[in-house]
Design a protein around this nucleic acid. Sequence first.
RNA 1: GGGCGCGUAGCUCAGCGGGAGAGCACUUCCUUGACAUGGAAGGGGUCACAGGUUCAAUCCCUGUCGCGCCCACCA
Length: 876
Amino acid sequence: MLDKTFDPKAVETRQSERWDSAEIGKPAGNGAPFTVMMPPPNVTGSLHVGHALNHTLQDVIVRYRRMKKDRVLWQPGTDHAGIATQMIVERQLAAEGKSRRDFTRDEFIERIWKWKAESGGAIVNQLHRLGTSPDWSRERFTMDEGLSDAVRKVFVRLYKQGLIYRDKRLVNWDPKLHTAISDLEVEAKPHKGSLWHLRYAIAGEPDRVLVVATTRPETMLGDTAVAVNPEDERYKDLIGKHAILQLVGRLLPIVGDEHADPETGSGAVKITPAHDFNDFEVARRHGLELINVFDSNAHLNDNVPERFQGMERYAARKAILAELEELGVIEKVEPHDHTLPTGDRSGVTIEPWLTDQWYVDAATLAKPAIAAVEDGRTRFVPVQWEKTYFEWLRNIQPWCISRQLWWGHRIPAWYGPDQTIFVEETETEALAAAKAHYGHDVELVRDNDVLDTWFSSALWPFSTLGWPEQTPELTQHYPTDLLVTSFDIIFFWVARMMMMGLHFMDDVPFKRVYIHALVRDEHGQKMSKTKGNVIDPLVIIEKFGADALRFTLTALTAQGRDIRLSEQRVEGYRNFATKLWNAARFCQMNECHPVPGFDPGSVKLAVNRWAVGELALTAGKVADALDNLRFSEAALGIYQFAWGTFCDWYLEFTKPLLAAGGEGAVETRATTAWLLDQILLLLHPTMPFLTEELYEKLGDRGGHLLATSEWPEFGEALVDAAAKEEIDWLVRLISAIRSTKSDINVSAVVPLILKDAGDASIRRLNDYRGLIERMARVDTANALGEAPTGGAARIALDEMTVVLPLAGAIDFAVESARLNKELKRLEGEIDRIDKKLGNEQFVARAPEEVIAEQREKRAEYAAAADKVRGALEMLA
RNA sequence: GGGCGCGUAGCUCAGCGGGAGAGCACUUCCUUGACAUGGAAGGGGUCACAGGUUCAAUCCCUGUCGCGCCCACCA
């Protein structure tokens, strides 16, 4: 016998172990391949609710496809997360009073690997708790040997194809982490700053001054020009002359450039080509000098007057403003709201800085990636994300892929004595190439930088399948079928996988991309550690069970809206698990055991024919929802059937049939067991633990659910229109009786029931209502043998048998309920029209005939309402 | 400055061209045997607002208001 309640903890541990030993994640069978690439979580990560959502959705689909007998591969793994991981270990060192610089590069990397071995796998274990079922035996890490090999090959090929190159240009420099970062890793943070208006003297024009506005006075030391708009009448004549930068005694050419907007500031703008992306372009156009004034810490370097050298950037600002003040050239200072570029990892303000870095020619790689979505080889769900994707790819900038870190894939480039670059997969090959180039052996120095983490993740869909080897997995599982991820990494990851996949595999990496919502906190804020508003899925699992969490996340996943997770919701769905558990318990107590070879098409009783038909419809609905990635629809569909149809109606209808015994009971037992089984199967993708446990306990099927069952598919054949009509009628009838609570009905019916019963246990009048409900069910169940005609029905309730002329009462109940409803609707309409006619705006703006029409409608409704009232009175 | 999305019951949210829904909360009742993590009944909604299209609009179109997010080099 099953326990009285479902105990998730015990079940989850046990079933997890069963699944692991059965290796349910391994691709099995000869079905069509179905492949899903797990977005590799950072090794530094710990399970947050976003992972929980992401992996639940994938697991739902993957389990569903396995039940459909596809050959499913769900490829798991973790990402080495360059900066994040290095930061963790550096923080550990800092706690010991050391820094990365106290170690050699190799020692430091050794230390990170050690950290990974000890605590890098936490997230994988946590995913286990959720019941996720990827093929753990194929788990990969972006820095493991095979994937690193793929990274080197890709880098070398792209370099030789001219799609990777080294360039000196402005990068986003993080002065705290001492590395370049890509545009995507820069966040614009709002900042309340000041705008300083400064007067510049003009060389040879003692009477003129030029006012220039800036938010960053400290960069003045690197100014090499002032730009004005060539169309700007105020300054046109100054073009070609020079402004005087008094601080350093430098002459700044005044150039005419479109970049200067006459509407903004004073219309004249200072040009600092080495520290501003726009100014850099201006300098290119006008051949201006570039003066770099910062070192890697964003402290002033030797290119500035000695008194400023070594100053931190904000200290320098103060010092410079003080001097300007003294010079009396500050025209005015305005408060100024703007945004500051901020490093997403370090949180410090990013400095545009002139360095040599490696770049990917993203614009070229983007073209096929755009085309593939345009022609539908890859589809986004929901489709509106395609717009975001296109927008970004069509305006894509070169991708800066080098990072001045130690943890990551070291760039396979070597420099000769004269700085000639040799890009090869190994040092040996580089040396050979150098020998060929120079004609003799030379010493090479390897590039110190590592690659952006996203470079290796971009290869994930084929590198994990064994590329560059032509493995059977690669042939069979690429392109993959589905990628499930959230919108915030469409650019970081999805777009780049598209580019790399198309370039190296000549096909899209995935046919569908499902973009799910972000899980937010109760205020709709993105959850983050710094805000301290994180809901820990492990705590939820502990409290309500993994199934309840999974079901909640699935039920809340509708398109186009973020998820605000509440614990109450999880609690509600935990109750659903309990409900189902108890339904199973009921089946067990009533000896409703699965009958081998049971044919749902063969049942005879109307109630059973109805139930199997409803189940078939539900199965179709759920499958359709899952096929189209409408997760909430799938979850709620099965919920509704299991609780609303099966528990609330079917089990109640059939209680008397079971009690009566005979052939009807035999058929009903078999049907009940079968229905419960089908519910378990339909629910399995969302609630794997509960369903697996019940499946195991309710029958001996010789193995776990995925191995020994199939997804229920019945088509329309099981739907018996006559049975459906009959039982639906009963359901409506009973509902109508229930909802008719007027004294007349209760008092009209109850005495009839009680006349011959005299049951001493019924004491209070309020009991009557419960009795009616019960009776109605007994009645209908008994009536199932013969078509309910609305005539006198036999009522059996325990030992008491009452014959009563229910028909009149029932008809009355139904009719009055209908009329009441109709009346309510009509009165609502009248109200609505009255409000409309009372609305000044409407009366003022609507044409005469529209108003007349409304008046007419009102009269019609009023007349109809009167009729209904009359009918109700007659009934009474 | 562009783009996307959202405003449906007290709260969190599904839904959608023809009967306004779920979970939780609330009110009343129910220890009869699957389940009080339950059962039954009920209250509560001009589906943000205003126009338009339609026989019919919460749903489609336009505008307004409010909210959120993404992208963007404006001193």
